[in-house]
Write a protein that binds this DNA or RNA. Structure first.
Lengths: 216, 216
DNA sequence: AATAAAATTTAGATTAGTCTAAATTTATTA
DNA sequence: TAATAAATTTAGACTAATCTAAATTTTATT
């Protein structure tokens, strides 16, 4: 098995890989709250284990075995988040830190049974897809609210920013997963958006619109 | 917060304290699968933190704060074991290793909610009492089957040996928590015992009888 | 293309937890 | 009670993961 630190590096490389071909040392250092020199050391170790492809100065990518491990950790993280919200009634902004610890519980049998216990959920409380026991998951393509025009509408299906502060703000505005919204107007001055919802109208900044994801 | 190693030492000291006033370095080394010299190092560290009372060569006891931490870890361990058996349908011999990891999930809010979710269970799958959120628990006094006479009876309420092998053996014989047994005979030669149960009669060795706990 | 800036790696040190081997203390026993 | 055995601690070393500071490589800019 891999150490906690190794698992966290693989997970971070996976996440950063979604936005860029090669993941850089500095990107990892920033995400992992560590120093670039520490990252370099770990990259060598992971490369020795053939979990990443590492060329000095050129960044890294995951090998297939490395990606498998990363996805398995993400599966665990999201299933535990689902458990915490659905079974223990935590709010969606409260579960991230706990799941950061729980994702390292090693047993796959445990996580598969947890999956069954909860009825094989497809999405976690933030709308992120939960990989199945073979690591497969739908990448339903979402767009930020900021990308749609006046009078277009969609259903809230995810967030880009997972910080507690952002999630709490959304909760307060009623902008939660599954809600239908329609763009009523866009303010020219700051491009903030006025959204029509079932029972009310809310105004959100461009920043918020960029981080709120919908399907049409 | 304390490290994983520290938590495991405190937990082990607690368990060993139940059988002896002072816990010795070698006892800890044996239980933790480590060397006496490693134990000494850790004892110094825990003494610095005032979690144990340590006098060189004389063994250790837990301080009140140390005991509180130990009991909290045991609470977590037993609640997770209960969860694994009751909600995820694991068998009683399968859950120990998983709970060894899960007991270190730090959030107390999480464990309190888990407790509520399961209806505040009083005993774990092996019959051990689960401390409540204030660390209190009943120490119902059990005796080994080997301590009762012919024609006396009792209800199985716990085990001394928690190894998977022993638990599997008990399961196969139907000697599980809650079952009523009566001593029908004791074989003089090896003091093995013949137990009358609801639907059948089983013979168990003295060794087994010593490790199977009942209430009268 | 030369130089400056940014990114990355290397070198050497640090901490937690562990180890072996040697030294010391306590317990046992002849 | 002196010698021996057992238990424990100390000394010094090791590994994983991190750090700072210096060196190197890549990228950007005149």
């Amino acid at each position: 098995m891999n150490t906690l630190a190794e698992e966290n590096y693989l997970k971070s490389i996976y996440h950063l890989s979604l936005n860029a071909e090669n993941v850089s040392t500095n990107q990892l250092a920033a995400l992992l709250n560590t120093k670039a020199s520490s990252v370099t050391d770990m990259l060598k170790k992971l490369a020795d284990k053939e979990l990443i492809n590492y060329t000095p100065y050129q960044g890294v990518t995951l090998t297939p075995p490395g990606e498998k491990i990363a996805i398995n950790i993400i599966r665990k993280h999201r299933l535990w988040e689902f458990f915490l919200v659905e079974k223990l009634n935590f709010k969606w902004d409260e579960v991230h830190e706990m799941a950061e610890e729980m994702e390292h519980i090693s047993s796959n049998e445990l996580i598969d049974r947890l999956d069954r216990f909860m009825g094989y959920p497809k999405y976690d409380p933030h709308g992120d897809p939960i990989p199945d026991c073979d690591g497969k998951f739908k990448v339903h393509d979402l767009k930020p609210v900021s990308a749609i025009e006046i009078n277009e509408s969609g259903i809230i299906c995810g967030v880009r920013d997972h910080s507690a502060g952002f999630l709490q703000y959304l909760e307060k505005q009623g902008l939660t997963i599954g809600k239908k919204i329609k763009v009523e107007d866009i303010i020219e001055f700051d491009r903030s958006m006025i959204l029509q919802m079932e029972t009310k109208t809310v105004q959100i900044s461009r920043e918020v619109a960029n981080n709120l994801l919908i399907t049409l």
